[in-house]
């Protein structure tokens, strides 16, 4: 199965979002897009061209955007707020908490440029805490797709889901490799069957996990590879079934270790099936300017880091 995971082209996850929005614009008249002065970055120009009456430019005022989205949802619309992940979460946390999450509003918070792979703009914009913040909000669904295809499918799927959603994606061109038609909110995607180690990966790190798994298999370490795109609600069953088979679990994500997917998985295992674990994530640090691959390497998130951590973990079993 691993050998089938290859790619012919690279595309950004945010392009998947933009193309998903184009489809939604045509299919679902309740969908309204809002943007805080980042239309080009969020790739929603086609949606705007085709549905000018269902696009709201709010300017550089994200708090107001979240409130307006809550009001639109109250009146039966399905608002999609769009801006960078930093301004979609940290900047407006209280607005999301009170006007959207606590008020059960059907708002889709769509966040691009998450994580280190935003690159050259540096740490002011590279949010690595957003998943933690959003998963703590009661009732919030948190989704971090892995490639163009999955982001497009997730974008379309969340319009049908009732309730607030945080959809996190990114800036860089990235391998397009996830099989089509497999996305289902809350359901883990199994990409390879193995027996020595479970590797759980989300977002951009899924491709790196595939690369690392291929290297591990060359050495006879077979990987049960699970893609968690929906960080909350977490598909606990899929993780437990796998770890009961392999006996150990590595989680890879482009996020702080504190508050990330790794912590969620650790929580499940601690409660239901304690097992050795490793986490490939950012270790309590801000990022910096640089190219995405340089940054991922410097902050311990390269395929090699996954490979090494996996080998060490298997030995520890």
């Amino acid at each position: 199965m691993l050998s089938k995971l290859t790619y012919k082209e690279k595309k950004a996850t945010r392009d998947g979002f933009g193309d998903g929005m184009t489809q939604l614009g045509r299919r679902n008249k309740k969908v309204v897009a809002l943007c805080a002065d980042l239309v080009g970055s969020l790739k929603i120009q086609t949606f705007i061209d085709e549905n000018p009456e269902r696009f709201i430019q709010v300017g550089i005022a994200e708090a107001n955007m979240m409130g307006i989205a809550a009001g639109l949802a109250t009146a039966g619309k399905i608002p999609f707020t769009t801006t960078f992940a930093n301004f979609s979460t940290g900047r407006v946390y209280d607005q999301i908490r009170q006007s959207i999450a606590y008020s059960h509003k059907n708002v889709k918070i769509c966040a691009s440029h998450a994580g280190l792979t935003l690159g050259e703009d540096g740490a002011t914009h590279q949010i690595l805490e957003d998943v933690g913040m959003m998963k703590m909000l009661p009732g919030m669904t948190v989704i971090n797709p892995a490639d163009y295809t999955q982001t497009k499918e997730a974008t379309i799927a969340i319009a049908k889901h009732k309730g607030p959603v945080y959809l996190r994606f990114g800036r860089p061109s990235w391998p397009v490799f996830v099989p089509k038609g497999k996305f289902e909110i809350g359901k883990a995607l199994k990409l390879n069957n193995g027996k020595h180690i479970t590797i759980v990966a989300t977002g951009h790190m899924l491709w790196y996990a595939v690369e690392a798994s291929k290297e591990l298999e060359k050495e006879g370490i077979t990987v049960d590879l699970i893609n968690i795109h929906t960080i909350k609600p977490l598909d606990e069953g899929a993780i437990l079934r796998s770890v009961k088979k392999t006996g150990c679990c590595l989680v890879a994500e482009e996020h702080q270790r504190n508050g990330g997917l790794g912590e969620s998985v650790a929580g499940v295992l601690a409660r239901k099936f304690p097992a050795p674990m490793a986490m490939v994530a950012v270790d309590d640090s801000f990022g910096e300017s640089g190219k995405p691959d340089q940054l991922l390497k410097k902050y311990g998130l390269s395929p090699k880091h996954i490979y090494k951590a996996a080998r060490k973990l298997v030995k520890k079993k």
Partner: peptide
């Protein structure tokens, strides 16, 4: 500070 924003959303709808 959040209510006017929400009211605007409802007004736009």
């Amino acid at each position: 500070g959040q209510g006017i924003s929400v009211a605007i959303g409802a007004a736009l709808a």
